[in-house]
Design a binder for these strands. Structure first.
Length: 130
DNA sequence: GCATTGACGAAGG
DNA sequence: CCCTTCGCCAATG
């Protein structure tokens, strides 16, 4: 079922050599993700909401996947699902890397879940002042 | 070019 | 409270 849509943004993974850098949804996601303070975390949905695409939280996650090879490293470990679960840990270099990075940030992780999630939660739309 | 699949999330049963 | 369905949009087969 589903559809076969195709449009907008196609430069997020292109090297951009002509200098005409076009910002895309992906880059916006990365931009926000890099602003996440150390020791704080946010959710895919929160970022999506900040970008005005609340219903497109999936794309945020997809953007994170592309971040794996992006130059300005993105703290993807600080982005978890609305449950506070490290849903994307398996997409890191190693399945344990995400948790290690978070704990290095001072975030306690237990059983693939962030402890004190609500307390650690960082909402871009709120913190960055939407 | 259509079908399937997600690092999600909210709503419905 | 657990499970299923639906929506969103890009990437992949």
């Amino acid at each position: 079922m589903k559809r076969a849509n195709k449009k907008i943004t196609d430069t997020e993974k292109l090297p951009v050599k002509d200098g005409s850098k076009k910002f895309s949804f992906f880059e916006d996601v990365w931009s926000v993700a890099r602003k996440i303070p150390k020791g704080r975390i946010t959710t895919y949905g929160a970022i999506a909401n900040y970008l005005g695409t609340r219903l497109s939280a999936r794309m945020v996650g997809w953007a994170m996947n592309a971040v794996n090879n992006v130059k300005p490293k993105v703290p993807a470990q600080r982005v978890v699902n609305r449950n506070g679960m490290l849903s994307g840990k398996m997409h890191f270099a190693t399945p344990t890397l995400m948790q290690e990075l978070l704990e290095k940030d001072g975030v306690k992780v237990e059983n693939d879940k962030v402890q004190d999630f609500e307390k650690r939660f960082w909402d871009p739309a709120k913190e960055l002042g939407l």
